[in-house]
Design a protein around this nucleic acid. Structure first.
Lengths: 121, 121
DNA sequence: CGGAATCCGAGCGGATACTG
DNA sequence: CAGTATCCGCTCGGATTCCG
């Protein structure tokens, strides 16, 4: 089964147990990538701003520490969702943005948002 | 903005910063509900089996302990995603299934799956 | 400016034993 | 059968300090 399957096909595969959470279904890896207290907010800010510097990003995420922002960005970069461009200037200058892979998550967030508007009071 | 907005409307709202991750966007609560090592696999099993007993569920989730299965189910129940029906028999008999709210997550998992098939090797 | 290094407390996930 | 009770190690998130 491939990425072009329809929603109806998907439901059918799940019902029949063909797609299993522990096996051939890629949902778990994605959930793991999005785990952590700040990951989603970071991606969201990058969606809005497009491209943003470390300091600006930190200001947008009220309460986050340097340590957490750095480690979250490093993991998102390792997972190929965020790209980091470093300008060799003094003072240092770094720009973060979403990769194609990261931008492709928007339909997922759209589905979550629709669910939320219906089921979260 | 409501639950009937189109994907294009959604993207536009995100771009303009109208939907913010820390404010009026309901994605974060959902991510929190799905956090934990076993939550997603449990929901998946319930999708497949429809209705299932504690012992059967445990057999389906290789490696999970009583403690984790119980606490995960309790949290999913508290969040309104899973329903628990207890039959007052001896020996005890309990059936778990997804609520409407839980079943409504399928489009979210579908979007995640499509993303995964495209971007996970 | 954009981090790295270090330390710390809380809580999550897990193992084991027991029970109505 | 379907849990509860207890204990424990380890990782996550956070505070603080220092650096190129």
């Amino acid at each position: 089964m491939d990425k072009d399957m329809s929603y109806e096909e998907y439901v059918e595969q799940v019902r029949q147990g063909i797609l299993t959470s522990s096996g051939n279904c890629p949902v778990t890896p994605l959930l793991v990538m999005l785990q952590g207290k700040w990951k989603f907010q970071i991606i969201y800010e990058l969606c809005i701003k497009g491209q943003i510097r470390f300091g600006e990003l930190k200001k947008s995420l009220a309460g986050i520490t340097n340590t957490m922002l750095t480690s979250s960005l490093r993991e998102l970069e390792r997972d190929g969702l965020v790209s980091r461009v470093q300008f060799n200037e003094i003072p240092p200058h770094v720009e973060y943005s979403l990769t194609e892979r990261g931008k492709a998550l928007l339909p997922v967030f759209y589905a979550m948002t629709k669910w939320g508007f219906e089921y979260i009071p």
